[in-house]
C-alpha cells in the first residue's frame, strides 16, 4: 500500500431531502488491515456513513478517497468498478430469499461477470470453486442448494459474509452484523468476520451498537454522535466518560455493579461492595 491511509473521509455531509442532517462534516481515516468499530446511538448516522462509502447513499458534500480515488465524483461505470472492491455485510443479511445459497454467494461476483452469463448462472469455474471454498470456510457446504430463506439467522449471515468475500474486496463495510442474532451466535459471527478479515488482509468498518462486542473484537473504536465523530481511540480507552460523550448521560456502572455483587455473593466474599 503506497498511501498512508486506505480510506480517507473528509468533511462528509449528508442531508436527506426531508431536511434531516445525518452527517455534519465527518472526518475519518482508515488504515489498511485495520479493524474499526463505529459505535453510537441509533440515528447517529452510522448506517448513513458506511453507505456513503460505497454510495448506496449519495453524500451531499465532502470527499471519500479510497486507494487514491475520490468515490464521490465517480460516474456510474467507474463507481461499479469501485464497488467491486468494497464488500458489504448487512444487519438483516440482505440475501435474496428465493435464490439458493450458491446463487447468493455467486451474486458477489456480478460486477466481474457479463450480464447474459450471470442471468444464465454461467460463472467461471474458478469463481465457483472459490465460492465452494468460502462456503466450506463458513461451514455451509451442506447447504449449497438450499434456498436462503430455509436457513437460520446465523447461517444466513454466514452466506452474507461469503457473498462479501467472494468479491475479493480491499475494504469491508459491515452494518450491524449481529443486531438480529442471539448473543452466542453474535459472538461467533463477529469472531468469524474478524478472523476472515485478518486472513484476507482487509480493512473493515463495523457499525455496531453493542459496545462490549466492539471492545472485544475491534482494534480501534470511533464514536459517532449526531453526525459528528466524538471519539476516536483504542478499545480499552473507552470508559464511562467516553460512553457519556457518545451516548449521553447514563449510569454506566449499574449493570456491572449488580453483576459484580452477585459474583461476590457466590464466592462468599467478605469484602463489601461500595454502592
Amino acid at each position: 500500500m503506497v498511501e498512508k491511509h486506505m480510506v480517507s473521509i473528509s468533511n462528509l455531509v449528508k442531508k436527506y431531502p426531508s431536511g434531516q442532517e445525518a452527517l455534519k462534516g465527518v472526518n475519518l481515516e482508515v488504515n489498511a488491515n485495520e479493524i474499526l468499530a463505529l459505535i453510537g446511538p441509533s440515528g447517529a448516522g452510522k448506517s448513513t456513513l458506511i453507505r456513503c462509502v460505497n454510495r448506496l447513499v449519495e453524500p451531499t458534500s465532502g470527499k471519500i478517497i479510497i486507494n487514491g480515488i475520490d468515490v464521490c465524483t465517480l460516474g456510474y461505470k467507474a463507481l461499479r468498478m469501485q464497488r467491486r472492491k468494497i464488500g458489504m455485510i448487512f444487519q438483516e443479511y440482505a440475501l435474496v430469499d428465493r435464490l439458493t445459497v450458491m446463487e447468493n454467494v455467486l451474486s458477489g461476483q456480478l460486477g466481474y461477470t457479463g450480464t447474459f452469463k450471470s442471468i444464465f448462472r454461467k460463472f467461471p469455474p474458478d469463481v465457483v470453486d472459490s465460492a465452494i471454498k468460502l462456503l466450506e470456510r463458513v461451514g455451509l457446504l451442506d447447504y449449497v442448494d438450499s434456498r436462503a430463506d430455509q436457513l437460520s439467522g446465523g447461517q444466513r449471515q454466514r452466506v452474507g459474509i461469503a457473498r462479501a468475500l467472494i468479491q475479493r474486496p480491499d475494504l469491508l463495510l459491515v452494518d450491524e452484523p449481529t443486531a438480529s442474532l442471539d448473543p452466542k451466535t453474535a459472538r461467533q459471527i463477529m469472531r468469524l468476520i474478524v478472523e476472515l478479515v485478518i486472513e484476507y488482509k482487509l480493512a473493515v468498518i463495523i457499525n455496531i451498537h453493542d459496545v462490549q462486542l466492539a471492545q472485544m473484537f475491534a482494534q480501534r473504536i470511533v464514536g459517532l454522535r449526531d453526525g459528528i465523530v466524538v471519539y476516536d481511540g483504542t478499545p480499552d480507552q473507552v470508559d464511562n466518560s467516553v460512553l457519556t460523550e457518545i451516548y449521553g448521560e447514563e449510569d454506566w456502572d449499574q449493570g456491572k455493579k449488580r453483576h459484580a455483587q452477585e459474583e461476590d455473593d457466590d464466592e462468599d466474599d467478605d469484602i463489601d461492595q461500595v454502592e
Binding site: 460505497n54 448506496l56 461499479r80 468498478m81 469501485q82 464497488r83 467491486r84 468494497i86 464488500g87 458489504m88 448487512f90 438483516e92 443479511y93 440482505a94 440475501l95 435474496v96 430469499d97 428465493r98 435464490l99 446463487e103 451474486s107 458477489g108 461476483q109 456480478l110 460486477g111 466481474y112 461477470t113 450480464t115 450471470s118 442471468i119 452474507g160 457473498r163 468479491q167 463495510l173
Partner: peptide, 23 residues
C-alpha cells in the same frame, strides 16, 4: 435490502434487476 446488497457488489442495473427484483 437485497437490492442494496446486490447493488453494493458492483452489479449493473440489469443484473440488479435479474438478481434482486426478479426472484
Amino acid at each position: 435490502e437485497p437490492i442494496e446488497a446486490i447493488t453494493a457488489t458492483g452489479a449493473s442495473r440489469v443484473q440488479v434487476f435479474f438478481y434482486g427484483y426478479v426472484p
